[in-house]
Protein backbone atom coordinates (compact mmCIF):
# COMPACT_ATOMS: atom_id res chain seq x y z
CA UNK A 1 0.00 0.00 0.00
CA UNK A 2 1.76 3.13 -1.20
CA UNK A 3 -0.84 5.74 -0.28
CA UNK A 4 -2.33 6.47 3.12
CA UNK A 5 -4.78 9.09 1.89
CA UNK A 6 -5.93 9.43 -1.69
CA UNK A 7 -8.19 12.31 -2.68
CA UNK A 8 -9.28 12.84 -6.26
CA UNK A 9 -11.32 15.70 -7.76
CA UNK A 10 -13.03 16.55 -4.48
CA UNK A 11 -15.36 19.57 -4.55
CA UNK A 12 -17.81 20.80 -1.95
CA UNK A 13 -20.45 23.48 -2.36
CA UNK A 14 -22.37 24.41 0.78
CA UNK A 15 -26.07 25.22 0.83
CA UNK A 16 -25.19 28.91 0.91
CA UNK A 17 -23.59 28.54 -2.52
CA UNK A 18 -20.09 28.94 -1.10
CA UNK A 19 -17.56 26.75 -2.81
CA UNK A 20 -15.52 25.38 0.09
CA UNK A 21 -13.46 22.87 -1.89
CA UNK A 22 -12.64 23.20 -5.56
CA UNK A 23 -11.38 20.10 -7.36
CA UNK A 24 -8.87 19.02 -4.72
CA UNK A 25 -6.59 16.14 -5.68
CA UNK A 26 -4.02 15.04 -3.12
CA UNK A 27 -1.99 11.92 -2.39
CA UNK A 28 -0.35 11.36 0.97
CA UNK A 29 2.05 8.45 1.57
CA UNK A 30 2.13 6.40 4.80
CA UNK A 31 4.29 7.98 7.49
CA UNK A 32 4.17 11.50 6.11
CA UNK A 33 3.57 14.51 8.34
CA UNK A 34 1.72 17.11 6.32
CA UNK A 35 0.74 20.64 7.33
CA UNK A 36 -2.39 22.13 5.83
CA UNK A 37 -2.18 25.92 5.82
CA UNK A 38 -4.38 28.71 4.55
CA UNK A 39 -6.45 31.64 5.74
CA UNK A 40 -9.72 31.17 7.64
CA UNK A 41 -12.38 29.83 5.30
CA UNK A 42 -9.84 28.44 2.83
CA UNK A 43 -11.27 24.93 3.27
CA UNK A 44 -8.77 23.29 5.66
CA UNK A 45 -11.38 21.99 8.12
CA UNK A 46 -13.77 21.05 5.35
CA UNK A 47 -11.08 18.97 3.66
CA UNK A 48 -10.19 17.13 6.89
CA UNK A 49 -13.84 16.41 7.63
CA UNK A 50 -14.23 14.97 4.14
CA UNK A 51 -11.25 12.69 4.69
CA UNK A 52 -12.84 11.32 7.89
CA UNK A 53 -16.17 10.88 6.09
CA UNK A 54 -17.94 13.26 8.45
CA UNK A 55 -19.40 15.19 5.47
CA UNK A 56 -20.11 14.02 1.91
CA UNK A 57 -18.70 15.90 -1.08
CA UNK A 58 -20.55 17.19 -4.14
CA UNK A 59 -21.82 14.45 -6.44
CA UNK A 60 -18.98 14.60 -8.91
CA UNK A 61 -18.44 11.46 -11.01
CA UNK A 62 -14.71 11.43 -10.22
CA UNK A 63 -14.89 12.58 -6.58
CA UNK A 64 -13.34 10.02 -4.28
CA UNK A 65 -11.60 9.75 -0.92
CA UNK A 66 -9.79 6.62 0.23
CA UNK A 67 -7.88 6.12 3.48
CA UNK A 68 -5.66 3.10 4.17
CA UNK A 69 -6.97 1.61 0.93
CA UNK A 70 -10.57 1.73 2.19
CA UNK A 71 -13.24 3.78 0.47
CA UNK A 72 -14.38 6.72 2.65
CA UNK A 73 -16.63 8.33 0.06
CA UNK A 74 -17.23 8.19 -3.64
CA UNK A 75 -19.30 10.49 -5.85
CA UNK A 76 -20.65 12.28 -2.82
CA UNK A 77 -21.79 9.15 -1.01
CA UNK A 78 -20.26 7.99 2.25
CA UNK A 79 -18.84 4.46 1.92
CA UNK A 80 -20.68 1.51 3.37
CA UNK A 81 -18.15 0.40 5.97
CA UNK A 82 -17.49 3.93 7.15
CA UNK A 83 -17.49 3.04 10.85
CA UNK A 84 -14.73 0.46 10.42
CA UNK A 85 -12.83 2.91 8.23
CA UNK A 86 -13.19 5.69 10.80
CA UNK A 87 -11.82 3.38 13.49
CA UNK A 88 -8.51 3.56 11.62
CA UNK A 89 -8.59 7.37 11.45
CA UNK A 90 -7.89 9.41 14.56
CA UNK A 91 -9.47 12.86 14.51
CA UNK A 92 -8.18 15.64 16.74
CA UNK A 93 -10.41 18.72 16.94
CA UNK A 94 -9.67 22.37 17.70
CA UNK A 95 -12.08 22.28 20.64
CA UNK A 96 -10.77 18.84 21.78
CA UNK A 97 -14.33 17.41 21.65
CA UNK A 98 -13.92 15.42 24.84
CA UNK A 99 -16.95 14.74 26.99
CA UNK A 100 -16.28 17.10 29.90
CA UNK A 101 -18.18 15.18 32.55
CA UNK A 102 -16.57 11.82 31.77
CA UNK A 103 -13.27 10.73 33.24
CA UNK A 104 -10.22 11.30 31.08
CA UNK A 105 -9.58 7.56 30.96
CA UNK A 106 -13.14 6.82 29.77
CA UNK A 107 -12.79 9.50 27.10
CA UNK A 108 -9.56 7.86 25.95
CA UNK A 109 -11.00 4.33 26.02
CA UNK A 110 -13.89 5.59 23.90
CA UNK A 111 -11.35 5.38 21.08
CA UNK A 112 -11.94 1.64 21.13
CA UNK A 113 -15.75 1.86 20.77
CA UNK A 114 -15.63 1.10 17.05
CA UNK A 115 -13.95 -2.22 17.76
CA UNK A 116 -15.59 -3.59 20.93
CA UNK A 117 -18.78 -5.69 21.04
CA UNK A 118 -21.92 -3.60 21.44
CA UNK A 119 -23.10 -5.26 24.66
CA UNK A 120 -19.85 -4.32 26.35
CA UNK A 121 -19.97 -0.70 25.25
CA UNK A 122 -23.66 -0.45 26.24
CA UNK A 123 -22.87 -1.58 29.77
CA UNK A 124 -19.63 0.43 29.90
CA UNK A 125 -17.69 -2.79 30.57
CA UNK A 126 -14.16 -1.99 29.47
CA UNK A 127 -11.68 -4.84 29.92
CA UNK A 128 -8.54 -4.58 32.04
CA UNK A 129 -6.52 -4.74 28.83
CA UNK A 130 -8.43 -1.70 27.49
CA UNK A 131 -7.81 0.13 30.75
CA UNK A 132 -4.11 -0.64 30.53
CA UNK A 133 -4.02 0.52 26.92
CA UNK A 134 -5.77 3.75 27.94
CA UNK A 135 -3.31 4.47 30.72
CA UNK A 136 -0.38 3.60 28.42
CA UNK A 137 -1.67 6.09 25.82
CA UNK A 138 -2.07 8.76 28.52
CA UNK A 139 1.46 8.07 29.77
CA UNK A 140 2.71 8.38 26.20
CA UNK A 141 1.27 11.92 25.91
CA UNK A 142 2.49 12.71 29.44
CA UNK A 143 -0.77 13.04 31.42
CA UNK A 144 -1.22 9.62 33.05
CA UNK A 145 -1.66 11.36 36.42
CA UNK A 146 -4.95 12.89 35.16
CA UNK A 147 -6.56 9.55 34.19
CA UNK A 148 -9.26 9.62 36.86
CA UNK A 149 -10.13 13.33 36.70
CA UNK A 150 -13.11 14.64 34.79
CA UNK A 151 -11.98 15.81 31.36
CA UNK A 152 -13.38 19.30 32.00
CA UNK A 153 -10.93 19.84 34.89
CA UNK A 154 -7.92 19.62 32.56
CA UNK A 155 -6.21 22.59 30.94
CA UNK A 156 -6.65 23.11 27.21
CA UNK A 157 -3.26 21.64 26.40
CA UNK A 158 -3.90 18.58 28.58
CA UNK A 159 -7.32 18.06 27.00
CA UNK A 160 -5.78 18.15 23.54
CA UNK A 161 -3.19 15.58 24.58
CA UNK A 162 -6.02 13.41 25.99
CA UNK A 163 -7.70 13.68 22.58
CA UNK A 164 -4.47 12.50 20.96
CA UNK A 165 -4.36 9.61 23.46
CA UNK A 166 -7.86 8.67 22.26
CA UNK A 167 -6.52 8.48 18.70
CA UNK A 168 -3.65 6.29 19.99
CA UNK A 169 -6.07 3.87 21.69
CA UNK A 170 -7.93 3.74 18.40
CA UNK A 171 -4.75 2.33 16.89
CA UNK A 172 -5.22 4.83 14.07
CA UNK A 173 -2.80 4.59 11.15
CA UNK A 174 -3.84 8.10 10.12
CA UNK A 175 -4.35 11.06 12.44
CA UNK A 176 -6.19 14.10 11.16
CA UNK A 177 -5.78 17.16 13.38
CA UNK A 178 -8.04 20.14 12.70
CA UNK A 179 -6.40 23.28 14.13
CA UNK A 180 -5.26 21.33 17.20
CA UNK A 181 -3.35 24.26 18.69
CA UNK A 182 -5.53 27.20 17.66
CA UNK A 183 -6.97 27.61 21.18
CA UNK A 184 -3.77 26.86 23.11
CA UNK A 185 -0.99 28.98 24.58
CA UNK A 186 2.48 28.74 22.94
CA UNK A 187 3.96 26.25 25.42
CA UNK A 188 0.95 23.90 25.21
CA UNK A 189 1.00 24.30 21.42
CA UNK A 190 4.63 23.24 21.35
CA UNK A 191 3.95 20.16 23.48
CA UNK A 192 0.93 19.10 21.40
CA UNK A 193 2.86 19.47 18.13
CA UNK A 194 5.85 17.62 19.61
CA UNK A 195 3.53 14.78 20.68
CA UNK A 196 2.05 14.53 17.18
CA UNK A 197 5.53 14.61 15.61
CA UNK A 198 6.72 11.89 17.99
CA UNK A 199 3.78 9.63 17.15
CA UNK A 200 4.46 10.25 13.47
CA UNK A 201 8.14 9.38 13.84
CA UNK A 202 8.05 6.42 16.23
CA UNK A 203 4.82 4.72 15.17
CA UNK A 204 4.99 5.67 11.49
CA UNK A 205 1.48 7.13 11.78
CA UNK A 206 0.48 9.44 8.95
CA UNK A 207 -0.41 12.88 10.34
CA UNK A 208 -2.27 15.64 8.51
CA UNK A 209 -2.54 18.77 10.61
CA UNK A 210 -4.21 22.04 9.68
CA UNK A 211 -2.54 25.05 11.23
CA UNK A 212 -2.99 28.78 11.46
CA UNK A 213 0.55 29.33 12.65
CA UNK A 214 2.87 28.98 9.68
CA UNK A 215 5.93 28.87 11.95
CA UNK A 216 4.63 25.69 13.61
CA UNK A 217 3.89 24.19 10.21
CA UNK A 218 7.43 24.84 9.00
CA UNK A 219 9.00 23.60 12.22
CA UNK A 220 7.17 20.27 12.57
CA UNK A 221 6.12 19.23 9.08
CA UNK A 222 8.27 18.19 6.18
CA UNK A 223 5.49 18.70 3.64
CA UNK A 224 3.21 21.70 3.38
CA UNK A 225 -0.06 21.94 1.46
CA UNK A 226 -1.54 25.42 1.14
CA UNK A 227 -5.18 26.07 0.34
CA UNK A 228 -6.86 29.23 -0.90
CA UNK A 229 -10.58 29.42 -1.62
CA UNK A 230 -10.77 25.63 -1.54
CA UNK A 231 -8.01 25.11 -4.09
CA UNK A 232 -4.55 23.63 -3.58
CA UNK A 233 -2.17 26.53 -4.28
CA UNK A 234 1.05 24.95 -3.09
CA UNK A 235 2.16 21.41 -2.34
CA UNK A 236 5.79 20.79 -1.57
CA UNK A 237 8.59 20.50 0.93
CA UNK A 238 8.66 22.90 3.86
CA UNK A 239 12.00 24.33 2.63
CA UNK A 240 10.36 25.50 -0.58
CA UNK A 241 7.86 27.72 1.25
CA UNK A 242 8.63 31.33 0.34
CA UNK A 243 7.40 34.67 1.54
CA UNK A 244 5.89 35.25 -1.92
CA UNK A 245 3.91 32.06 -1.70
CA UNK A 246 2.64 32.96 1.78
CA UNK A 247 1.63 36.40 0.57
CA UNK A 248 -0.32 34.69 -2.19
CA UNK A 249 -2.08 32.50 0.37
CA UNK A 250 -2.84 35.01 3.07
CA UNK A 251 -3.03 38.19 0.95
CA UNK A 252 -0.84 41.27 1.16
CA UNK A 253 -2.72 43.07 3.90
CA UNK A 254 -2.71 40.21 6.37
CA UNK A 255 -1.55 40.84 9.95
CA UNK A 256 0.89 37.98 9.56
CA UNK A 257 4.55 38.86 10.06
CA UNK A 258 5.55 36.94 6.98
CA UNK A 259 9.22 37.79 7.38
CA UNK A 260 9.39 36.39 10.88
CA UNK A 261 8.21 32.97 9.73
CA UNK A 262 11.18 32.32 7.51
CA UNK A 263 14.11 32.05 9.84
CA UNK A 264 15.27 33.25 13.22
CA UNK A 265 17.20 36.19 11.75
CA UNK A 266 14.05 37.89 10.53
CA UNK A 267 12.51 37.17 13.89
CA UNK A 268 15.27 39.11 15.65
CA UNK A 269 14.82 42.09 13.34
CA UNK A 270 11.10 42.30 13.95
CA UNK A 271 11.23 42.06 17.72
CA UNK A 272 11.69 45.82 18.37
CA UNK A 273 8.82 46.53 15.99
CA UNK A 274 6.57 44.12 17.84
CA UNK A 275 7.59 45.64 21.16
CA UNK A 276 6.79 49.11 19.90
CA UNK A 277 3.41 47.96 18.64
CA UNK A 278 2.66 46.41 22.03
CA UNK A 279 3.49 49.70 23.78
CA UNK A 280 1.08 51.57 21.54
CA UNK A 281 -1.82 49.28 22.25
Amino acid sequence: MSTAIEITHLSKTFGTGKRALDDVTLRIRPGEMVALIGASGSGKSTLLRHIAGLIPSDRDQRAQVAVNGRMVQQQGRIGRGIRETRAGIGFVFQQFNLVGRMRVLTNVMAGDLGRMPLWRSLLGLFTDEQRRAGVRALARVGIAQCAFQRASTLSGGQQQRAAIARALVQGAQVILADEPIASLDPESSRRVMATLADINRSDNVTVVVSLHQVDFALKYCRRVVALRDGRVMFDGAAEQVSADMLRGIYGNNSDLDLGSLLGPQADEDLRPVAAARFALA
Binding site: A52, L54, R83, E84, T85, R86, A87, G88, I89, G90, F91, F93, Q95, F96, N97, L98, V99, G100, A110, G111, D112, L113, G114, R115, L118, S121, A163, R166, Q170
Partner: peptide, 13 residues
Protein backbone atom coordinates in the same frame (compact mmCIF):
# COMPACT_ATOMS: atom_id res chain seq x y z
CA UNK B 1 -22.51 18.66 19.40
CA UNK B 2 -18.70 18.69 19.40
CA UNK B 3 -18.09 15.85 21.89
CA UNK B 4 -20.58 13.75 19.92
CA UNK B 5 -18.51 14.44 16.78
CA UNK B 6 -15.48 13.29 18.73
CA UNK B 7 -17.13 9.98 19.59
CA UNK B 8 -18.44 9.55 16.03
CA UNK B 9 -14.96 10.10 14.60
CA UNK B 10 -13.68 7.05 16.51
CA UNK B 11 -15.97 4.81 14.47
CA UNK B 12 -18.65 4.41 17.13
CA UNK B 13 -22.23 3.58 16.08
Amino acid sequence: PQPVDGIRATGAN
